[in-house]
């Protein structure tokens, strides 16, 4: 039931507050529709976070702006602007606004990976950032 509700909520595109686990569950449900049996994994999220995609010279990996740990404050690799930590433990507003989360995945994935991220990658990523300590 929760899954149905979440997918309605994603499909409707209405901006509502959600918790990071709810957001991760929404992406996980979407991923499970594409590949049945999908389970989100914080470990895969950590690997994804650490991976060097090397598509962009100044932003070869997540760490280029967000540092090696999602618990630390980062710095925009081009403009030098301060970036608050990604982990909800360090920055409580993270992964609570679905529209904002989608916007930043859309921008950052195209910058760093040169393509959109899959629902599975998003679910893993949020789980990793949420569990980071």
């Amino acid at each position: 039931m929760k899954r149905v509700w979440l997918s309605c909520f994603f499909a409707s595109g209405i901006a509502m507050a959600a918790s990071p686990p709810e957001l991760a569950a929404g992406y996980a449900a979407e991923a499970a529709r594409q590949s049945p049996g999908f389970q989100p994994s914080a470990r895969r999220g950590a690997e994804f976070y650490a991976r060097r995609f090397a598509v962009s010279e100044k932003m070869p990996a997540c760490a280029a702006c967000h540092t090696d740990s999602p618990l630390q404050a980062g710095r925009h690799a081009v403009t030098g602007k301060a970036i608050r930590p990604l982990a909800p433990r360090a920055e409580t507003a993270r992964f609570t606004d679905p529209a904002k989360v989608e916007k930043w995945f859309r921008r950052n994935c195209s910058e760093v990976l040169g393509r959109a991220c899959s629902a599975a990658e998003k679910a893993d990523f949020i789980l990793f950032a949420t569990e980071a300590k």
Binding site: S56, E57, K58, M59, V78, R106, R107, N108, S110, E111
Partner: peptide
């Protein structure tokens, strides 16, 4: 905005 100085600002 899709090609915003090496980034995406769509």
């Amino acid at each position: 905005l899709d090609k915003h100085y090496g980034g995406s600002a769509v």
